[in-house]
Amino acid sequence: MKLKVIDAQRCVGCQLCMFACSRRSGIGGLSNSCIGVKSAGGMSKGFTVIVCRSCKNPPCARACPVDALEVRPEGGVRLKAERCIGCGACRNACILKAVFWNNETQKPLICVQCGICAKYCPHGVLELRKDTGKEEVRS
């Protein structure tokens, strides 16, 4: 399954997706979110929704000096937290800025394409879709 931003124009900037992602582990707040909603240069211009594209050849994994990011066969990566040294190389390697950071644990936050964010989006911005196996053109 892959997460897709189907229409960022519908986004109202409520950040319920970010709170939902952070709440996966049953805690409140925002420290744990793997999705980002930012204004596109001020609120009047709407929003940019940043999600992991689960790349087939992920630069984040290539940049990791300790092999803490395991490439998944369907694309994207999984974090082996016990190996991670919190150097931030993965974050710097992702030009989408889709590797988020937990300031409390000093480790990256990696999207696992679970779709909980889409479940809590009340405005039809996000969708979890079946993976076609192809490298799709996506927004």
Binding site: I27, G29, L30, S31, N103
Partner: peptide
């Protein structure tokens, strides 16, 4: 600004 967790 800030990003924290709120444990329950």
């Amino acid at each position: 600004s800030g990003e924290r967790s709120i444990p329950v």
